[in-house]
Design a protein around this nucleic acid. Structure first.
Lengths: 224, 224
DNA sequence: CATAAAAGATAGTATTACTATTATTTTTTG
DNA sequence: CAAAAAATAATAGTAATACTATCTTTTATG
């Protein structure tokens, strides 16, 4: 026996709930592995089908197309970070301490005792870092937004913005700072790995301590 | 007679210099229009060829594929911003004033008296806002980086980081702040237009004054 | 065990992202 | 200005992608 958490997502993100069947969970599990390995552009349902010994048609019964699948994964990640923040800030009253926990969740959600066996949180974090922006940088962003496909990100931004306002109620840009801390975290990890001349920080292996320090410094300075 | 500026880019970005021929310039001009209109994913060389009454094969003589063409356009934009900063900060000694000019260039490079007739700077800025990240979020980033395909962005980051260090030589994150001001500018304009709950600012028409104020506030606070 | 639902097998289509070849037009330059 | 060279256009073709449709087999459930 074990405690299971199931992250529930906007039901427009799938045609059939993938978390409720064996095949569905395999689609999630191996899409993460393949997108991480080949990148989103080179990832296809055909390759995924081969990998899991299934067929393209079967995958299409779960997800409309690979873009919606990416949205599903990115939403899963946003919900996961939301969840981590919630449980790790229980009984924490000091908003400054809360923001530290939030920042810690941003940089290393991947290392937080993974509890869903079909999701490799570390690889999923890498996907969010490398491909996450593609989830909302499309021509369909407005229709998708109206269907609620970004509500988990908004929820995250709202939670963080509230903590920011608790720290400094005069601060004029709580949402901007909230999303920026998240984007900056992913961006600077990416830059450190691939375009190091665009950042000051270094990331060795999965040691993101420098990013965490940097984000804390920015947040403290801006809210002082 | 008129003064012409020609922005020269890394020659790995094209097979044949498009700025030197009529067809090449049409490719640049209409690819900007079409990518802005349809988005990068739906943009194809076939559609572009039809639009300019040419053929796919002819376009392929200039650019290896549409991804390299996007890189070309984004690099053109980076160089353009570099150029704007250079000319607008001549004879400006105060680094704080310089940074204000830099921020102004980030938010409204599009409105700065365009001088290359085959480039619609406003649409190009929209492409950078909506699709710019895709230029470096690919599996080929490391090879492309080694070919110098991101040197214009690095150049921009270096210039800005130097001004930042002039303002406050103790500031530990000049590159991070430099790239972040740029990314934050584009990101928040995008959010204001499509996902307004993720930002505090509003952008009406092309009035990006609020973004400019916000970036100045962030920069001043961080460097004080 | 009957029935429905899920998954697999197979086939097929339109579009995309190219490459190759030849013909025609435009530009260069001697 | 004519010849040669270069650029472009026209056409055709291929492999892969992103699907859709249909039918059969397997698995779950009451």
């Amino acid at each position: 026996m074990s405690i299971e958490i199931k992250i529930s997502l906007n039901n427009g993100l799938y045609l059939k709930e993938p978390q409720d069947s064996k095949l569905g969970r395999k689609i999630i599990q191996y899409s993460i592995i393949l997108i991480d390995e080949f990148g989103f552009e080179a990832f296809t349902f055909k390759k995924l089908a081969e990998k899991i010994n299934s067929t393209e048609a079967s995958i299409y019964r779960y997800f409309e197309n690979k873009h919606i699948l990416l949205l599903f994964l990115v939403n899963w990640y946003w919900e996961w970070v939301n969840y981590l923040i919630r449980i790790n800030t229980i009984n924490v009253d000091d908003p400054k301490k809360k923001l530290e926990i939030i920042i810690h969740s941003f940089v290393s959600a991947s290392q937080e005792n993974p509890s869903v066996d079909y999701v490799n949180e570390s690889k999923l974090h890498n996907i969010v870092i490398s491909e996450g922006g593609k989830a909302y940088h499309t021509k369909e962003v407005d229709t998708e937004n109206s269907k609620g496909f970004f509500s988990s990100y908004k929820q995250l931004a709202t939670t963080v913005s509230q903590v920011i306002s608790q720290i400094n109620s005069d601060f004029k840009y709580p949402f901007t700072l909230a999303t920026n801390l998240f984007e900056m975290s992913n961006n600077n990890i990416y830059f450190a790995r691939h375009l190091p001349r665009l950042t000051d920080i270094t990331v060795e292996k999965d040691n993101v301590k420098e990013v965490e320090n940097m984000l804390n410094y920015f947040a403290n300075k801006l809210l002082s």
